[in-house]
Design a binder for these strands. Structure first.
Lengths: 147, 147
DNA sequence: AACTACTTGCAAGTAATTTGCATTTGTGAT
DNA sequence: ATCACAAATGCAAATTACTTGCAAGTAGTT
């Protein structure tokens, strides 16, 4: 898509270096794509947005996996078929997902975390690492086109 | 597994009939399995719990799909790899999912619905049909075995 | 410039789910 | 009860999303 902008590139290189990860072109490009994404993307969509289809899908998956482990990227459970990825540097948040077109909107703030505490010492769970809260509906665009 | 108990069978037959769906053995058996399940099951697990492995997996999937459309069964987004199904006749609720063993616990009550209203008239969404709220952590059993 | 461990592309492999099609089976009508 | 037929099923093949093995390439150190 667009090239990598210098600002970001420098930032990413430092982040990668401090985690002892190599700053490969594929990695920088994937981060750049996610940086500009308006909504969470599937691995395939990410590959599609990469400059000149030279990067293999396997590489995309491998990098997403490591970015996820480092906590830089998070995967969403909005489809039981496909994972969608976004940068996790944004404030913790949830989404509205259109069941017709799949478009998502981020929702600021999260009240669900408060609820978490109530569950911690019950139900035989040692600890709760994360939660997912997603709303599914119909965006206005899809409603108009009667989907 | 166990046979179909008469009580349930009669109930299911009526429900199916009123939706103009045939009461096939596979259908009745799948409903019976879900009725007795202690936690959401994958299509494969459902097939495994069916009497004498004669029902094809494709049939299980096709039936789950129709049961979902009728609103009798709902699928959970707890893994982006596999769908887990449960009867939706239970009170609306969410789950605790152990990231190690996959075991789930149902959580009574749902505070998330309240939050929904706040989103309805914003974000360009026409309406919100459903939401998913799942907590992921480690159940005590898995913590003990140091997973 | 050389070394080496980490990365990548490519091809093959898996797991979950879907689809095509010929055959069988519930069900309402007879 | 029997019939007719749309709906449902089994089986095999296809599809999708993702993973893995391996030889070749490369970032980052020396």
């Amino acid at each position: 898509m667009t090239g990598i902008c210098k600002q970001h590139e420098i930032h990413y290189r430092q982040a990668l270096k401090s985690s002892r990860q190599k700053a490969t072109p594929a990695r920088l490009a994937i981060l750049e794509v996610l940086e500009h994404a308006r909504h969470p993307l599937s691995a395939d969509e990410i590959k599609g947005a990469l400059p000149k289809g030279k990067t293999d899908l396997a590489t995309v998956y491998r990098n997403l996996e490591m970015l996820k482990e480092k906590g830089w990227v998070s995967a969403l459970n909005i489809s039981s078929q496909t994972a969608y990825y976004e940068l996790s540097k944004l404030e913790h948040h949830h989404h509205l997902v259109c069941e017709s077109c799949g478009r998502t909107k981020a929702l600021a703030g999260c009240k669900a975390a408060e609820l978490t505490k109530n569950f911690l010492n019950q139900k035989g769970f040692a600890r709760i690492a994360r939660h997912s809260l997603e709303y599914f509906g119909l965006c206005k665009k899809c409603e108009r086109t009667n989907n």
